[in-house]
Amino acid sequence: MRFLPLAALCGLYALPAHADCAAEIDALFDGALDSFARPPHHQLMTILGPGGATEMQIDQWVWDPLRYASHVRGQPQYTLILDQEMWQAASLEGPWTALGTMLPGDRTAWQKRIDADRRANVTEVECFGTVDLNGVTARGYSFRTKTEPDDHGVWFGAHMTLFVGPQDRVLRWEFRDNVAHYQPEPDDKVNVTDFDYAGAVPIPDPES
C-alpha cells in the first residue's frame, strides 16, 4: 500500500478555503462523519513514525461503533467488542474467551458526544475539491478539531485530512499533530486509516 504525500493527492498547492468550505465540512457530520451512519467495513490503521516509517498496523472489522473486532498485526490475539462485553481469541473464527465488562455503560452517548465535539470544534478548514485516491475519485478535506474533556478529564484532538468517495463514504482518514489530555503537545506521528467497505465480515458469535 502506498501512502502519498498530501500535495501529490491534492495538487502542488492546496486550494484556499472558500466561503462554502466550512459549511461543506460541517455537513460531513450528517453523513460521512456520522459514526452511526457508516456501513460495516474493514479498516486498516497504519501508524507512521518520523520519516514515514511504519511503526504499527491495526486491522479492525467494524459493524457499528459499539461492535467491532481488532488485531494488531504481528500479535497473537484478536479482540472482539460487542456493546459492553469484551472477548479475546487467536483468530476471528474463535474460540472466544470472555474478558468481562470493561467499557462505560452508555457507549452510544459517549460516541455521539465525540462526534458532536469534533463538529463544534472544527477550525483551519481546507477543501481540496476532487482528487484521485488510488484510482478512485474522492473529495478531499482538511481541518483541525478536538473533543472536550469528559467527566474524567479525557480529551483528544488532531489535524485531520479526510478523503470521501462514492456514496458519501470515508475512504481514508489521516490524523496528524495528535494531542490528548496526557499529551498536550503535538506528537510527530501520522495515523492513516484506509476503509474497505467490501471487506466486511459477519459478526462473530463468541458464545457459539
Results as ranks from 00 to 15, higher is better:
Met1Val: 11
Met1Thr: 11
Arg2Thr: 15
Phe3Gly: 00
Pro5Gln: 05
Leu6Lys: 03
Leu6Trp: 13
Tyr13His: 14
Ala17Thr: 12
Ala17Cys: 15
Asp20Ala: 15
Ala22Lys: 14
Ala22His: 14
Ala22Cys: 10
Ile25Pro: 05
Ile25Tyr: 00
Asp26Gly: 13
Ala27Phe: 02
Leu28Arg: 05
Asp30Thr: 06
Asp30Lys: 07
Gly31Arg: 07
Gly31Trp: 01
Leu33Gly: 04
Leu33Glu: 02
Leu33His: 04
Arg38Lys: 12
Arg38Trp: 13
Pro39Ile: 09
Leu44Cys: 10
Leu44Val: 15
Met45Arg: 12
Thr46Asn: 02
Ile47Tyr: 07
Ile47Trp: 04
Leu48Asn: 03
Leu48Ala: 04
Gly49Tyr: 07
Pro50His: 13
Glu55Ala: 09
Gln57Pro: 03
Gln57Ala: 11
Ile58Glu: 07
Asp59Trp: 03
Gln60Asn: 12
Trp61Cys: 01
Trp63Tyr: 04
Asp64Ser: 09
Leu66Tyr: 07
Arg67His: 09
Tyr68Ala: 12
Ala69Pro: 00
Ser70Gln: 07
His71Lys: 02
Arg73Asn: 04
Gln75Glu: 15
Pro76Leu: 08
Thr79Ala: 07
Thr79Ser: 08
Leu80Tyr: 04
Leu80Trp: 01
Ile81Phe: 02
Leu82Ala: 00
Asp83Val: 00
Asp83Thr: 02
Met86Thr: 04
Trp87Asn: 10
Ala89Asp: 03
Ser91Lys: 09
Ser91Glu: 09
Leu92Arg: 01
Glu93Lys: 08
Glu93Met: 09
Glu93Arg: 05
Trp96His: 03
Trp96Arg: 05
Thr97Asp: 11
Thr97Tyr: 07
Gly100Gln: 07
Leu103Tyr: 12
Gly105Phe: 00
Gly105Tyr: 14
Asp106Glu: 05
Arg107Met: 05
Trp110Pro: 09
Trp110Asn: 02
Gln111Arg: 05
Lys112Ile: 06
Arg113Pro: 06
Ile114Gly: 04
Asp115Lys: 05
Asp115Ala: 13
Ala116Cys: 02
Ala120Thr: 10
Asn121Trp: 11
Glu124Trp: 02
Phe128Gly: 05
Phe128Ser: 01
Asp132Ala: 15
Asn134Lys: 11
Asn134Phe: 12
Gly135Thr: 00
Val136Ala: 14
Val136Glu: 15
Ala138Ile: 01
Arg139Tyr: 10
Gly140Val: 00
Ser142Gly: 15
Phe143Tyr: 13
Thr147Lys: 01
Glu148Gly: 03
Glu148Val: 06
Glu148Ile: 03
Pro149Asn: 10
Asp151Pro: 10
His152Ser: 15
Trp155Ile: 06
Phe156Asp: 11
Gly157Tyr: 01
Gly157Gln: 00
Ala158Leu: 04
Ala158Ser: 14
His159Phe: 13
Met160Glu: 13
Phe163Ile: 06
Val164Trp: 10
Gly165Leu: 00
Pro166Arg: 11
Gln167Asp: 15
Leu171Tyr: 08
Trp173Phe: 14
Trp173Leu: 01
Glu174Arg: 06
Phe175Gln: 08
Arg176Val: 04
Val179Asn: 07
Ala180Phe: 11
His181Thr: 12
Tyr182Gly: 02
Tyr182Gln: 02
Gln183Ile: 08
Pro184Met: 04
Pro184Asp: 09
Pro186His: 06
Pro186Arg: 09
Asp188Lys: 00
Val190Ala: 10
Val190Ser: 01
Asn191Glu: 09
Asn191His: 15
Asn191Gln: 14
Val192Lys: 03
Asp194Val: 14
Asp194Ser: 11
Asp196Asn: 12
Val201Phe: 03
Val201Tyr: 05
Glu207Cys: 13
